[in-house]
Simulated assay, not measured.
Amino acid sequence: MPGYKVHISGSFVAGILVLLGLVNIGLYVIDPEQVVALLVVCVLGGLFPDIDTDSKGKRLFYSGMLMLALALIYLKHFQWAAYLGVLAMLPGVSAHRGWTHTWWAMLLVPMPMLILPYYIYGHPLPTLLPYYVAFVTGYFSHLFLDREF
């Protein structure tokens, strides 16, 4: 079973490959700041399935979530910080390699990144879709490396 370093590397490589593929077919224009954000989201997606167990990957994931929550609070986006907190608690209610290691969770877990900003703030879906794809790509790399398919 791969450890957190393999999952971080795998999700990073998968994210780069997807970005290069999308650039190659003309669906994405490189914006360096957004690329960094997308790769961070991709790595978080790659760590997410193992946050239901005590691991280094779990600690890294929650460290990233904590920094994001603190940034949201600093920016006075309290509602978003609350949504993030609820989503971060979900894996704590299941057994390891339970629902977090399923293909449907790979598609459903990042869905709030599309739905909430669209319905609450009216953000257009095309601006949100890259972050959803990045998280799903990282998540897919984790399931692939764990041989869940």
Rank of each mutant, 00 (worst) to 15 (best):
V35W: 01
Y118R: 08
H96W: 07
W80Q: 12
H123M: 11
L72F: 10
G45H: 05
A95D: 07
E148Q: 15
R97H: 14
L60I: 15
L19W: 04
T137A: 11
K58P: 02
L128G: 04
D54M: 10
K58C: 12
H142V: 05
A105P: 01
V136M: 13
T100W: 10
A14K: 08
L145E: 09
I30D: 03
P126C: 03
H123T: 12
L47H: 05
G45Y: 03
A82W: 07
Y62L: 15
V13N: 02
Y4R: 08
D146K: 12
M1L: 10
I51M: 12
A37E: 10
L108D: 05
L116D: 01
G3I: 09
W103M: 12
T53P: 00
S141W: 10
S63Y: 07
V86C: 06
L145F: 15
V18I: 13
G3Y: 09
T53R: 15
R147W: 06
F135K: 02
I8S: 02
A88G: 08
M1T: 10
L27A: 11
L19H: 04
T127C: 01
L44H: 02
Y4N: 03
Q79V: 12
G46E: 07
V86P: 07
Y118S: 14
L19G: 05
R59C: 02
Y139W: 11
M89H: 03
W99Y: 13
D31H: 12
G3V: 04
R59N: 13
G64W: 06
P91G: 09
R97M: 14
Y4Q: 02
G85V: 08
D146T: 08
